[in-house]
């Protein structure tokens, strides 16, 4: 039996759509709702629901402002979210490349 601690992937990030959203946000400091719609390919309602979950988890910060009489909703990853995503990626790499490393 292996003594290595078992891998625990963050269930908030592990969901397919949220993984896409967090990956995109990790590349941009801040992104508007429209930008996320364009890059993730999700529907409006779907994206809203997932953003709500990410905001309530404390991984994403939401700010709303009116620009040219239009509401501009902007999202950015919080330091907690960035850390969680980095941890998720490290765990994922351990999960997918772990057996190879152990063999060598």
């Amino acid at each position: 039996m292996s003594d290595a601690p078992s891998i625990v992937l963050d269930p908030v990030i592990h969901e397919a759509a949220r993984l896409v959203i967090v990956s995109v946000l990790n590349e941009c400091g801040a992104a508007s709702f429209n930008f996320l719609l364009g890059t993730t390919g999700l529907t409006r309602g779907n994206l809203s629901a997932h953003m709500l979950r990410l905001v309530s988890s404390g991984y994403v910060h939401e700010s709303k402002q009116i620009v040219d009489r239009k509401m501009l909703t902007e999202y950015r990853l919080t330091p907690v979210g960035r850390k969680a995503f980095a941890k998720y990626r490290a765990e994922w790499m351990r999960l997918t490349t772990g057996p190879k490393e152990q063999a060598t």
Binding site: L19, N26, F35
Partner: peptide
């Protein structure tokens, strides 16, 4: 597939930036 799809979206965001 989900993981690679996320990577693709991130690459798209990077290209736009």
């Amino acid at each position: 597939r989900n993981y690679f799809a996320a990577g693709k979206s991130a690459q798209k965001a990077r290209r736009l930036r």
